[in-house]
Amino acid sequence: MIVATEESENQAEWIARFQAGDSVVFADLYAKYANDLFAYFAARKPTRFSIEDLSQATWTKIWRYRTNFTYGAFRPWMYKIANSVLTDHWRRKLPNLLAENFDPSEPTYDQDDSRLDALRECLENVEGTFVEVVRGRVNGLSTESLCEQYQVNAKTIATRIHRGKQ
């Protein structure tokens, strides 16, 4: 027996099974995409949204609208549904604040995030060249460049990063 998958040459068969609500097909899709979907919502959701709720709502919609998927790749179709779920949640939470051209796939960044404030405070209060060394590393400077810049050896750089992290 040939088992069709979404990428296989038997895509028409796979889509027919998907539209018919074949539990094996859905289980495969869930196993393949559940984590990616979770990651997608996690990168975009405001803190008051539940990733679990958003994911569950997406899989429910995928099931409900499965007959609308007629051809092509499943993944982009799934993310269209994910974006509509995200928009629905935003509308419920902030019904008057959504712009007409609102794009749910654009993440919102909290201006008032106490965790980031704590990080800023930590960086301001760490003594020595730790912050400069970390910034240099993030900007792609090699250990050699950092050694030259701060006139120290590689071991000292490593120690400063280690101590700063602590």
Binding site: N35, A39, A42, A43, R44, L119, L123, V131, V134, R135
Partner: peptide, 19 residues
């Protein structure tokens, strides 16, 4: 991190670190 649940934290932390 692209497929993890902490991408948003990573992005915001990198921005803070760069200052």
């Amino acid at each position: 991190h692209l497929v993890g649940v902490h991408l948003r934290d990573l992005v915001q932390q990198l921005e803070v670190i760069q200052g």
